[in-house]
Amino acid sequence: MDFSFPLDPNPLYIPRNYKWESGADNVSHENKFGFIGAGRLLGTSYFVADGVNEKGLSIAELYLPGEAQYQPAPEDNKNNLAPHELILWLLGNFGSIEEIEMNLSDVNLVSVKAPMLNIVTPLHWIITDETGRCVIIEPTEKELKIKENPVGVMTNTPCFEWHVENLRNYLNVRPKQYEPATFGDYTALPFSQGTGTMGLPGGYTPPERFVRAAFFKEYIDQAENEAAGVTNAYHILATVRIPKGIVVTQEGAEDYSQYVGTMCNQSRSYYFNSYDNSQIAKVTITDDLLQVDKPISFLADKIETFKALN
C-alpha cells in the first residue's frame, strides 16, 4: 500500500452482520460474513483496503488514476456504492469469485469522495478465492465486469491489458546465467552471477514494478507450506516496496509503501507489517473471532523491534 497521505491502518476485523450506510445513496447494508484486512475508522464507518473473509475470498485495491470512471449519481434498482466501499460489500457478502460474477452487474459505482482523504479514489481491484482463481475489476465502463488475471499480479495505472502486453518486452530476462561471449580474440566473461536478470527494470513506475513482481513471482522457489508462502510474498514485494524519499510527488509529498498485507485463503489469515517495523504480525479468523459482534482493531507495533541474541 503506497500513499503519500499517512493512512495509519492496522489489521482490522469486521464482524458478521456489520451494518453500514453507503455514502452513494445513504442506503443501509448489513454484511453476512466476517473478514480481516488492513483498515481503520473513516468518518462513521470502518473501511479496509484489502482483506480475506471467512469463506476464503481475498481482495486488494490499487490505484488507477486517469482510467477509473465512476457514475455521477445513484440509480434505482442498483447497489449504489462509493469506490472505497466496494471491498466492504464484496468481502461482507460473497464467498467466491463465481458468486461475485453473478452479482457484479447490479453494482453502480458513484463518484463519492472518501472520508478524511476528501478525494474520489480512482481504484481497481484484484481478487482471488480458495480455488486459486485470480481476477480483476477495472471500472473503465459503466457496467463492472470480471477480467481473468493469468499472471496473478496487478499494480497501478495503466490498465491491466497494457501491463500484460508489456511483458513481451522482457523475453530475454531469465534466472539462468548467460554464457561468455566472444569478440574477436577476446572472450567477455560475466562480472559475477545474475547476468540473466540484466534488463529487469529498476524504477518505481507501475509498469516497472509490474514486470519485477511478475518475474519474481514466476521464478521464485515454490512454497511448500503457508509460512514459506508468506516469506515468498515478502521477498517478492521487497522488490517493489518504496522507501521514504525515493518517490516525491509534484506537490513535494513522499509517496512510500506504508505497509505490506498478505492473505492466505486457506487458513483465513492476514499478515501485516508497517513501514517502521519489519516484524510480520498475523491475525487469523477463528471460531471465537467469528462470535465477536463489533469491529476489532489489532494494534501492530509501529516501532522497529529487534531480537537480542546476547
Rank of each mutant, 00 (worst) to 15 (best):
Leu57Thr: 01
Lys19Phe: 00
Gly95Glu: 01
Val164Trp: 09
Asp25Ile: 12
Gly245Ser: 15
Asp288Met: 07
His235Tyr: 01
Asn265Asp: 09
Gly152Trp: 07
Pro11Gln: 08
Asp221Arg: 04
Val211Tyr: 00
Thr239Cys: 02
Leu123Ser: 02
Ala181Thr: 14
Trp125Lys: 03
Pro11Asn: 06
Tyr204Ile: 11
Asp276Ile: 04
Ser105Glu: 08
Gly34Leu: 00
Gly152Glu: 06
Asp25Cys: 12
Thr231Ile: 03
Tyr270His: 12
Ala188Cys: 10
Asn265His: 13
Gly132Leu: 08
Asn166Thr: 07
Asn53Met: 04
Leu167Lys: 13
Asn79Ser: 02
Leu189Gly: 00
Val151Gly: 05
Ala238Gly: 01
Arg40His: 11
Thr262Met: 10
Thr262His: 07
Leu123Ile: 01
Asn265Tyr: 08
Asn53Ser: 04
Glu254Asp: 15
Thr195Glu: 02
Pro15Trp: 06
Gly34Pro: 00
Glu141Arg: 13
Ile136Val: 06
Asn225Phe: 00
Phe3Ile: 14
Gln71Thr: 14
Lys32Leu: 15
Lys282Glu: 15
Phe191Glu: 13
Val107Pro: 00
Tyr259Gln: 05
Pro6Trp: 07
Leu167Tyr: 12
Met154Gln: 11
Ala73Leu: 12
Val283Pro: 06
Arg16Val: 08
Thr197Ser: 13
Leu7Trp: 08
Ile14Cys: 03
Ser4Leu: 05
Phe160Pro: 04
Leu81Ile: 11
Ile220Trp: 02
Pro139Gln: 03
Tyr234His: 12
Asp301Cys: 05
Lys32Tyr: 11
Asn17Tyr: 12
Ile97Asn: 03
Asp50Tyr: 03
Gly23Tyr: 13
Gly56Asp: 07
Gly196Thr: 10
Leu200Ser: 09
Ser45Asn: 15
Phe272Cys: 09
Glu148Lys: 12
Lys55Ile: 02
Glu161Lys: 15
Ala308Thr: 14
Leu42Trp: 05
Ser105Pro: 00
Pro295Lys: 15
Glu224Tyr: 04
